[in-house]
Structure formats: structure tokens, C-alpha cells
Design a binder for these strands. Structure first.
Length: 503
RNA sequence: GGCGCUAUCGUCUAGGGGUUAGGACGUGAGAUUCUCAAUCUCAAAACCCGGGUUCGAUUCCCGGUAGCGCUACCA
């Protein structure tokens, strides 16, 4: 009987969650869920000031939006708490003291300036720039005296290991020579624990069994192994994930554009699309072919065996493709609801959004959804519904040419009066009118519909008229910040601007 | 400088000592439609370089190159 799997995600709250971190979180979550294990959220906030506590809130909110849930964390507790590093400082100093008692750690009084000087000299002499060990053999009495005298001191671990080896969950057997690292800092002179020390203490005490993290931590692993060894603790299994790169093959960062959970949310990317995409970045399902996987499939199929070792370039186009897929397949009611804030922001809707407006909006979404990659594109895709703008008719080559043609004027001069006279029309009536116009003018197909489309929408392209006409007619009766013009209102306006003569 | 990680279409990847090197995004062409899109069909597109091992290497080994990471009292 093996111990139950316990994994964790341990971000520091910085105000946004980078996709690289989001992917690490996702992989841990998938691994935990696949193995029916526990997923722990721990906040690494030792350096965060009080004023920045709100960051934790937004971090948790972003992870929730992303679709992850955790079994233990600062917001829900658990029997291994507290789950904030800032609340665990006594724990770190307790083990540091223990280590010093056993002579496995010592006070270091070197100043940062001194250390920097050592470093430069070592570099110049072509030596490895690691800690010299100056304070390593100070007597306990002298150390105590200097600390009592108020001298600033950090705590360093005494490295005794020959080398460090572990069987990496994704890279396989990995080995580092012991002489590449100097004695690492455990506790900084300001009393805060160093990262490589705090994670070890936390991971051990929280009984973490598998540490899945970015491969930038590979060379930190020996340091952490040294701490496990000194404390006589059994280390967890480590697995290191490759980096996510930007299109220029440098590490993906904010300067590459939308790279945080928050920014994808603002763009109107669906969390399930992002989950699917990120899961595929560095991992592939066993058949090597399936691209679209929901959470159930992701969890069922997830395995550390199929992790790619090489770094992956983040491809927004493929994310968009997945997002379009999920957008089209999600329940319309949900997408409609999600789209409301974007349309309010554009000034097309205002609170309160009544059930009638929502019902109508569903039709709008239905008409324009296939034209967009993500929800924030909705206002521009639906613009020709909310606004009837003829000002660009003349500078657009396509519409301009169209309007000049004899056949277009012929079609419209017959079509427009029919609609204006009828007032409100249904799509069936519209079809009747177009059939009549067809009979009267002999124009059909593109020649018939294109001018009508331009007259009705002010644009040469857009959703099917079959969908637009009821939307215009029903929209005209709604109370919206901006009145939606009905078909006949549009055509009256068109007549005025374009000067179509009615025969 | 030292140490480490990585290397298959433009991109994400599957595969693996003998394959027509598979899939997806994107791209191009065609079909369809009142238009754009969506959809469907088809197409172009890859094993970093050099040396071993081997009957045979894209696959295994070594080296090079390139990219990335670490080399902190950052996390």
C-alpha cells in the first residue's frame, strides 16, 4: 500500500498568475486528481508586505476562474496549516535552531558587500563563485557573542554531501556533483527564510509526496536535497517541467502580450479552453492525436510518462482555435451571460439587463459567435447590430462599387419601399419581398442580396440575414442605451444618405 | 567562466534501428453560402551538424552548435 499522493502549488502572490505557473498548477492538479490524491495550495508570501495582501485574494480568484480546486489552502484550512509562509516563520526558525544545535548549520556574518567582493575575485581568478566558507568554522561561543552584540547574522547550511542524485519523474536519473554549491543560506539576516529552505520545511511537514515544478528549479534541487539530508527527512519525488517560450524563443513573459490568467479572462478566453491548451503544452495523450479533451478526459489520461522535455513556444492561434471550439459548444445561456460585461463596457448594454434583453442577446450571440476568437471581440463583431453606420459606405471600395451599380439601385429602389410600407417585418416577409424583387428585376443570388445586405447593415459582410432580420426587429423594441434600428428605420436612413430614388 | 536541461513540419506534438515519419494549429487551393465566417475535401511543409556503433541510424553513444535555465541574504 503506497502512501496517498499529495501535491501542491506554491505561488507567490504578485498580482497576476503567469501562464507558466498556471500550467504548473494545472499539471499538479491533474496529477492529484488522476491519483485521487490531495492538491494543496500554499502561499509563498514571506516577502510580501501587508499592503499587498490583496494579491492573495486575486491569486485565489484567478485560480478559481481557471477551474482549479484545492483540498487544503489558506482560504479553506486543512490539518497541515497554516498555508501561508508568512505564518510559519516560527517553524522555520525552530528547525534552523535545531540544525545549528547539531552543528549542521552556522551563523554567517559576512556582509553582502564582502560576498560580492568574494564573488568577483573568484570569477576573475576563474574559480567557481561560491561561498568561501569564511564563517563556517567560527566557534559557537564567538558566534553567540557576536549575535548577542547585535551583529547581523544569516544562517547557513553546512554542505557535507559528495554529490546529489534523484530519479526525476520526467527526466529520469539526475545527478549533480557536490562541489558545485557553496553552503546555502537557510535564514536571511532579516529573519526571513530563504526559498530553498522554506519549501523543504513546508513540503516535508505538509507530507507532499510529489513536487512537480518548472525546470528552472532543477539546479535548486541539490540545495534542497542537502536540507532534506541535514534534517534527516526523506525527500519527495521531483518532476521538472520544461519552460514555456514566447514566439522569439525567449522565456514567455509579460512583454509577449497576454500571458496571465487575468489577461486571458479579460480577453474572454474560456477557462476550459485554456486548460485544454495548457495541458497540451508539454503533454500529450496516449494516442498522440486527440486535441480536444475536457477535464474528465484530461484527468483520466494524465500521466507523467507523456511529458515533453523540450521547451514549448506558446501559440495564441491554437489557443484561439480551442477557444472557438469551446465557445461554440458551450451552452448558449452561459456564453450569453459571460458576454454581458463586454457589451456593457462597449456601451451597448446597461444594467439591469432584463430577461427580455437576455433572450434577445442569445440570438445576437448565435449570429456572431462563429466570427470571433474570444468574447472581447464580441462588441466589434456585433457592431453592425448595435450601430447602423453608413459613414464608411463611400470610402469602402467594395460597398462603394456595389452602390454605384445599376442593378443594385434597381434592386433597392424596389425593395426599400416594400419594407418601409410593411413596417415591422418577419424573416418570412423579407423572403417574400426578395422573391418579388427578383421577379420584378430578374436579379437573383448575390446580385440581389448583396445590395440588400449593404443597405440593411452598412457592411458588405456579416452574419446571415436570416438571423439579422429578427434581431433588428426585436432589438428595436427593447430599451437599450442605444436604440437598435429596425429594418425599415435602417432603410429610411439608407435612402436619405445614399439617395436611392424610389420608382 | 562553471554546472545543468533541451533539439521531429513555421508552431504544438506522435513515433521509433528498416515507416509513404502520423495528428493538430496556422498557411494555400477547391466545394458550399447573399457576403465574411463556419463547415467539408485536398495540398505544401520536419527528423540541427559531425563522428561512431550497426548490414542499416531520424531513432542508440560521443562531440559540436544553438536555445534556455541555474550559478543571490530572489522566489
Amino acid at each position: 500500500m503506497t502512501a496517498p499522493v499529495r501535491v501542491r502549488f506554491a505561488p507567490s502572490p504578485t498580482g497576476y498568475v503567469h501562464v507558466g505557473n498556471a500550467r504548473t498548477a494545472l499539471f499538479n492538479w491533474l496529477f492529484a486528481r488522476h491519483n485521487n490524491g490531495a492538491f494543496v495550495l500554499r502561499i509563498e508570501d514571506t516577502d510580501i508586505q501587508r499592503s499587498e495582501e490583496r494579491y492573495e485574494k486575486s491569486l485565489i480568484e484567478a485560480l478559481r476562474w481557471f477551474g482549479l480546486d484545492w483540498d487544503e489552502g489558506p482560504d479553506k484550512g486543512g490539518r497541515f496549516g497554516p498555508y501561508r509562509q508568512s505564518e510559519r516563520k516560527e517553524i522555520y526558525s525552530r528547525f534552523a535552531r535545531e540544525l545549528m544545535e547539531y552543528n549542521k548549520a552556522y551563523y554567517c556574518f559576512c556582509t553582502p558587500e564582502q560576498l560580492e567582493k568574494d564573488r568577483q575575485e573568484a570569477l576573475k581568478a576563474g574559480r567557481q563563485p561560491r561561498y568561501s566558507g569564511r564563517c563556517r568554522d567560527l566557534s559557537p561561543e564567538e558566534s553567540a557573542r557576536r549575535v548577542n552584540a547585535g551583529e547581523a547574522a544569516a544562517v547557513r547550511l553546512k554542505i557535507t554531501d559528495e554529490d546529489f542524485a534523484w530519479d526525476d519523474l520526467v527526466h529520469g536519473p539526475t545527478r549533480f556533483s557536490g562541489d558545485v554549491i557553496g553552503d546555502p543560506i537557510l535564514v536571511r539576516s532579516d529573519g526571513n527564510p530563504a526559498y530553498n529552505y522554506a519549501v523543504v520545511v513546508d513540503d516535508h511537514l505538509m507530507e507532499i509526496t510529489h513536487v512537480i515544478r518548472g525546470d528552472d528549479h532543477i539546479s535548486n534541487t541539490p540545495r534542497q536535497l542537502a536540507v532534506y539530508h541535514a534534517l534527516d527527512w526523506e525527500p519527495p519525488r521531483f518532476g521538472h517541467l520544461s519552460t514555456i517560450l514566447g514566439p522569439d524563443r525567449s522565456r514567455l513573459s509579460k512583454r509577449h502580450g497576454a500571458t496571465s490568467l487575468e489577461s486571458f479572462r479579460e480577453l474572454g478566453i474560456l477557462p476550459e479552453a485554456l486548460r485544454n491548451y495548457l495541458a497540451l503544452l508539454g503533454w500529450s495523450p496516449a494516442d498522440g492525436k486527440t486535441e480536444i479533451l475536457d477535464d474528465r478526459e484530461l484527468i483520466a489520461q494524465f500521466s507523467l510518462d507523456h511529458i515533453t522535455l523540450s521547451p514549448a513556444v506558446f501559440d495564441p492561434e491554437k489557443l484561439n482555435w480551442l477557444n472557438r471550439h469551446y465557445l461554440k459548444n458551450a451552452p448558449r445561456a452561459r456564453i450569453t451571460e459571460l458576454s454581458v460585461p463586454f457589451l456593457i463596457q462597449a456601451g451597448y448594454l446597461a444594467e439591469p439587463v432584463t430577461p427580455q434583453v437576455l433572450a434577445w442577446l442569445k440570438k445576437v450571440i448565435d449570429a456572431v459567435l462563429k466570427n470571433i476568437d474570444y468574447l472581447s471581440q464580441l462588441p466589434s463583431a456585433a457592431r453592425l447590430i448595435f450601430e447602423y453606420d453608413l459613414s464608411h459606405l463611400k470610402d469602402n471600395e467594395e460597398t462603394c462599387d456595389e452602390m454605384k451599380s445599376e442593378s443594385a439601385r434597381e434592386v433597392l429602389s424596389r425593395f426599400i419601399p416594400k419594407v418601409i410600407q410593411a413596417g415591422r417585418i418577419t424573416y418570412e416577409q423579407f423572403r417574400e419581398f426578395t422573391r418579388e424583387v427578383q421577379k420584378e428585376t430578374g436579379r437573383k443570388g448575390r446580385e440581389l442580396f448583396h445590395p440588400i445586405r449593404i443597405a440593411l447593415t452598412g457592411a458588405a459582410s456579416g452574419p446571415e440575414l436570416e438571423k439579422l432580420i429578427p434581431i433588428f426587429e426585436e432589438g428595436a423594441e427593447l430599451r437599450l442605451p442605444r436604440h437598435i434600428l429596425s429594418c425599415s428605420e435602417r432603410l429610411q436612413e439608407f435612402q436619405r444618405v445614399a439617395g436611392i430614388q424610389i420608382t
